[in-house]
Design a protein around this nucleic acid. Structure first.
Lengths: 257, 257
DNA sequence: ATTCATTGCGTCATTATGACGCAATGTAAT
DNA sequence: ATTACATTGCGTCATAATGACGCAATGAAT
C-alpha cells in the first residue's frame, strides 16, 4: 500500500475501524548528549510538528493503542508508558486546518466527516533508550526526529501544552519513584544520571549530595569498569539493580508520611 | 419532565447531544464520623451501585462535564476536582447489562444503539465537605448516598477499581501537597485532621509527630476556641490558612529533590 | 472528689540534608 | 617528561527532620 492509498483508506474507512472522538498522543522522552529530548513528527507540507499519536481501534484497549503508536514510531516495546492526562477542550481541534490540509491531497471533506469532528486526546509519556530508537514517520507525516525538550519547533494546536504537562508529571514522579532505567544506556556514570535529573528538574544539584542520596536508595550497582576516553579522571560505571529498582517503583522512595 | 420522559429523551436524543464513546465518572470523597466516604448511586431495579457519572456534551470541555456531574449530585461547585485516570478497556462495558436494564422500562435497543457501544471513561476525584452535600440521584438511579470507602456494596463493572485508583492517587498527592481543605469543616481539631490522613493512608501515625510535621508546613491557623462537649480535655480548633494552603498546593511540600 | 481518656508540650537519639574541603586521576598543554 | 587542570571519589561538619516516647494538664463521667 502506498502512502496516499494509506491516507485514503484512513479517511474513508477510519470511521469503521476506530472509536470516534478519541485519540492518543505520546510524549516520548529520550536522553542524549546530556539533553532531554522528545520525538516529533513533521507535517507533510507545512513546517509544523506534532506529537506521535493515533486513533483507537474499536476493540482495542486504550493503553494498547498507545503502545502501538510507540512501537510504530520507535520500533520499541517499552514497559514504561504512563497515561498522564486527558486534553478535552472543544477548541483543541482545528477543523479548518485538517480540511485544508487534506484538500492538498485532493481530498474534499464535508463538516460531518469523522476526522473533522472534535477529538479528545489521551496523553501518554514514555521514557525510552535514545540509542535504540529508529524514528519512523507515520502515514500523515514526512519526518520523525528528536528535538531538545526546550527547543521544539512550532507545534500543532495544544501539543506544546501536552509536552509541558508531561514534564510536570515526570517531575512529580521523580520525587517518589526512581527514574532513569530505559532513559540511560545499560551502563552509565553518576554524572550522566545526575544530568538527567537536573534536566528533568531544570535545577542544579550538588554532585556529592546527589550521589549520596541516589546511592542510599540502593537501586544502583557500581561496576568495576570505568568510563574510557574522557579528558579527566575516569568515572565509575553504574547499572540499575533491576530487582530493587522495580521494588522502589512499586513502593516509592519513602518520603512523605 | 418526568423521570421516564427524561430517560426516553436521553436514549433517543443522546447521540445528538453527546460525544460518542466517552463518559466521565466521579469519585466524590467526603469525611464524616472519622471515616472517608464515597458518594454512590443505586440502580433503579437491581441492588447494584455505581459512581456518579455522565456524558460529555458535544461542545463541552471534558472538565466542565465532570463539574456538571459533581454539581448535579452534590449541589456543590467544588474547586478541587482532579482528573486522575482513563479507564479504557473494551470489556469494561457490559452491553447486555444495559440492554436488559432498559428492557425493564419497555425500551428495546439493537446492537448499534449509541448507548450500547463501548465507552471509555475519564475518572475524576473530588474532595468535598460532607455536611454541605445534598445527595441527589440522577435520571437513571433511585438513590444517592454516602458509603464508607472500604465498605462499599456491589459496584457496577470496574467502578471498584476506579475508586481504588482514585485512592492511590490521593495517597500520592498527600505526599507532596496538603489535603484537608474542603474535606473537613471550616474549623476542625488536630485529631480530626490526623484521622483524615490516617484514613487516606490506611496507616497509624504518631499523634505528636503528626502535629509537629503538619504545623511545620505553616498552613494551619490555631484558633483560640476549643472544641466543646467532648468527654475529655478540650482540643483546640484549627482552620486552614488559605493563602499558604494554596501556595503549598502549587509549590508542593518540599520533599524529593 | 476521683477516675481516666485525651490533649498540649516537650525530650532525646538517630538519620537526612545542605554546604563544602581535599587528595587522586588522567588527558591535554607545555 | 613535566605540569596544568577539569573532574572524580570520598569525606567532614553544622543543621534540620524524623521516630519513639514521657509527663503534667484538662474536663466530662463516675
Amino acid at each position: 500500500m502506498t502512502k496516499s492509498e494509506a491516507i485514503n483508506a484512513l479517511i474513508h474507512e477510519g470511521r469503521n475501524w476506530f472509536l470516534p472522538s478519541l485519540s492518543v498522543d505520546c510524549v516520548i522522552f529520550g536522553f542524549h548528549d546530556n539533553q532531554l529530548k522528545v520525538l516529533l513528527l513533521k507535517h507533510r507540507y507545512l513546517n509544523i510538528w506534532s506529537l506521535p499519536g493515533g486513533f483507537i481501534y474499536k476493540d482495542e484497549p486504550v493503553d494498547a493503542a498507545a503502545h502501538r503508536v510507540l512501537k510504530e514510531r520507535t520500533g520499541l516495546n517499552e514497559i514504561f508508558l504512563h497515561q498522564f492526562h486527558v486534553f478535552g477542550d472543544p477548541d483543541r481541534y482545528d477543523k479548518e486546518f485538517h480540511r485544508n490540509d487534506l484538500k492538498r491531497d485532493g481530498i474534499e471533506l464535508n463538516d460531518e466527516h469523522w476526522i473533522l469532528q472534535r477529538f479528545v486526546t489521551i496523553g501518554y509519556y514514555s521514557l525510552v533508550e535514545f540509542s535504540k530508537v529508529t524514528p519512523a514517520p507515520d502515514t500523515l507525516s514526512e519526518k520523525c526526529m528528536w528535538w531538545e525538550i526546550h527547543k521544539t519547533p512550532a507545534l500543532m494546536i495544544d501539543h506544546r501544552k501536552i509536552i509541558d504537562k508531561a514534564l510536570d508529571t515526570l517531575r512529580i514522579q521523580l520525587s517518589y519513584q526512581p527514574v532513569g532505567y530505559k532513559l540511560l544506556p545499560e551502563k552509565f556514570t553518576m554524572p550522566e544520571l545526575q544530568r538527567l535529573y537536573e534536566t528533568i528538574l531544570d535545577k542544579k544539584l550538588d554532585r556529592r549530595n546527589f550521589q549520596r542520596k541516589i546511592l542510599s536508595f540502593q537501586i544502583l550497582r557500581r561496576l568495576t569498569e570505568t568510563k574510557k576516553g574522557v579528558a579527566h579522571k575516569a568515572p565509575y560505571l553504574f547499572s540499575f539493580n533491576l530487582k530493587k529498582y522495580h521494588k522502589a517503583l512499586r513502593q516509592g522512595l519513602g518520603g512523605g508520611w
